[in-house]
Design a protein around this nucleic acid. Structure first.
Lengths: 195, 195
DNA sequence: CTCAACTCCAACGTTTCCGTTGGATTCTGA
DNA sequence: TCAGAATCCAACGGAAACGTTGGAGTTGAG
């Protein structure tokens, strides 16, 4: 059987995403990642370095994926903000690993995150889109663009951050993801609604 | 020196709150908690059981504290929703441990959380306050009460969930907590604003 | 064909952590 | 005062995880 380095790396990285997302940096063992990938632990160390390095690699990769998957280049009006929030929500719904990785990372409170410069650019680009829409009067300017963009992501992400709270709050009715999504859309649009 | 069991327990619990909030369940060691409290590990086991039990105890305690510290019994109008969000934000700002414990818990995705019944009651009471304000027309009814209450908490909590994102988004201006708080207040009020 | 370089894994030493135990010290009630 | 109960800790056994190593199998260039 021929060597297939690229495939081996991919398997390891996929396994690492799953394990890290599920159990965090401290809760994950290198052994388990390797076994999930059907490979040996030593491959992890030789390809990716130690555990924190692997975590950083994995997170950076996932962030690149979401950047490509959920674009935002123009905001026509408040409704577009709601749509964007719903898109983010849908992406997280389909790829819950990303949010979880971000949350694990947030809880580590590192002084600097991996790939900081690129990620800052990415977020700043999103903020710029909000800024432009505000300047041109298509959405409200009452909330500063950076805060507005951040809070829209808050609305979309909180469901995955504290699922136990979501579950307890919706105890009586079987509301389901669809109705959550509708509420989210309305809420995000409201943040941007003109006076 | 006389025995002081209550004081010993308090010291252990305080140390456990700090360590668990900082490093999570897996990242925390019983040894470190005990040393932070200036006591022996064995005291932890005899008083609180093993590590997961201790975590559950600690979290339940902190939740009781916040329940007492940030009441919400009446919503006069949208502005009151903004004020409530700001109160929650301020509490988290003064006691960042609670949010962090909740987030660690959320990431464990347990099928059931400790003290589930009491916590459900607590959240449902909050939801009921929103429901009443909606029924009486003091705030908008467009977003279902459970979702509305949840999303208000999202706005207040997201800053602590992903501080790295907050930092990167506000890269250029030294916006600071005060301006975040103002934006949050405005945003929360908007969720409840009548049409 | 040959050999150097690359890929892979079983097994290892070391460290760290969990949860317990045996015993010393301190308190209390009779 | 004294016996027994409660509080505390140093030290331990065992398990698990990290990161490494030595060697076996595979490839491709010369």
């Amino acid at each position: 059987m021929a060597w297939n380095t690229a495939e081996t790396k991919r398997k390891l990285k996929d396994a690492a995403v799953a394990e890290f997302a599920a159990h965090g940096l401290d809760g994950t063992t290198m052994e388990k990642i390797a076994r999930r990938a059907g490979l040996n632990k030593e491959r992890l160390y030789s390809y990716f370095g130690d555990k924190p390095q692997l975590f950083a690699t994995v997170l950076a990769d996932e962030l690149n994926k979401v950047a490509a998957a959920v674009p935002l280049t123009e905001i026509e009006g408040p409704q577009a903000v709601g749509d964007y929030a719903a898109d983010v929500y849908d992406y997280h719904s389909a790829h819950p690993e990303l949010t979880r990785l971000l949350l694990w990372e947030g809880l580590m409170d590192l002084p600097e995150v991996p790939d900081e410069a690129a990620r800052t650019d990415y977020y700043r680009a999103k903020v710029a889109v909000f800024e432009r829409a505000q300047r041109e009067g298509r959405i409200s300017g009452r909330i500063p663009a950076a805060d507005l963009a951040f809070l829209v992501l808050a609305l979309a992400g909180w469901w995955y951050a504290v699922p136990q709270m979501a579950r307890m709050m919706h105890a009586d009715k079987a509301s389901g993801a669809a109705s959550n999504r509708t509420a989210l859309k309305e809420a995000a649009a409201r943040l941007a609604a003109p006076e």
